[in-house]
């Protein structure tokens, strides 16, 4: 068992890992998606780089720095977090890890697709958690909006309950292996329609699909996706933390862009340091 698992390898996640490791913890960092830093051409406002630095180099240096301290860093997509009897279980596309504490530093990916009707029907047929809400759709026709392993995890749960499950990729390519024999519809979605609840998906080409419920699992799971499934308190699509980066779940911390505020590296590293120190205090 690891002491601490950090999800995300951007400035917040790596700083958290470095502080925790230097305080004597056994740390694993899991990441897959591109960090916002990696996508930044040139960073010219970060302390100490008088000529600026390109994002890719800064990201790579961070990961190397953590590895030099013997932090284990693995490029694996995280599909879900569970907490049972004070142990966290982190499922990736390859295996399941366990730890005493978890730090979420996944950045601020959009949780929702930009489709009319999604926000309007939240709780009225739009769901973010198949395990929580699947049973309301027994023998009904449901869809999962997504295109990868994360969406497939939701499908695997729903296929035993619902009458039919369709993957809606919303114009995106399927990225990973998905359940065989599944209905896949790749058309871009125009809007979700219904009277008081979800009843139909209308596509850009004018065609439609009658549906009773839609589960959202776009791309790779982000901090907000974990929050919806685990019950982490969220406000305005950002995870709520206290001054020690502690969420409402004991042993679970969040830092960096996922907590909102100033979306800057200096803020991410401060929060990463705080989360790393707090997580170490927690496990001791």
């Amino acid at each position: 068992m690891y002491d601490i698992i950090v999800i995300g390898a951007g400035p917040a996640g790596i700083t958290a890992a470095i502080y925790a490791k230097r305080a004597g913890a056994n740390v694993l960092v899991l990441y897959n998606g591109e960090s916002n830093v990696e996508k930044t051409d040139k960073i010219e406002n970060y302390y100490g780089f008088k000529d600026g630095i390109d994002g890719q180099t800064l990201f790579k240096n961070g990961v190397e720095q953590a590895k030099n301290l013997e932090v284990v860093v693995r490029k694996e997509e995280v599909l879900g977090i569970e907490k049972i009897d004070n142990v966290f279980y982190i499922e990736t596309t390859l295996k399941k890890y366990d730890s005493k504490a978890v730090i979420i530093a996944t950045g601020n990916k959009n949780l929702k697709p930009d489709v009319k009707g999604i926000s309007e029907f939240e709780g009225k047929g739009i769901s973010y958690c198949a395990i929580c809400d699947g049973f309301f759709y027994r023998e009904k026709n449901v869809a999962v909006i997504g295109n990868g392993a994360f969406a497939n995890k939701e499908v695997e749960h729903l296929k035993n309950i619902a009458n039919s499950v369709t993957i809606l990729t919303n114009g995106n390519q399927i990225k990973d292996k998905i359940t065989e024999g599944l209905n896949v519809n790749s058309k871009p979605i125009k809007q979700i329609q219904g009277e008081n609840k979800v009843q139909r998906v209308e596509f850009e080409d004018g065609s439609g699909l009658d549906i009773d419920g839609i589960f959202i699992a776009i791309g790779e799971a982000s901090g907000l996706d974990f929050a919806k499934r685990l019950g982490i308190a969220v406000k305005n699509d950002f995870i709520i933390v206290d001054e020690n980066m502690q969420t409402n779940i004991s042993g679970l911390y969040a830092c960096g862009n996922v907590t909102g505020g100033l979306l800057q590296i200096c803020k991410a590293t401060y929060e990463g340091a705080k989360a790393g120190i707090s997580a170490v205090k927690f496990i001791k």
Binding site: C129, I131, C132, L230
Partner: peptide
């Protein structure tokens, strides 16, 4: 709520 639902246990 439902007993198996993790967010419900937080609520």
């Amino acid at each position: 709520y439902a007993t198996w639902c993790a967010p419900c246990r937080m609520m």
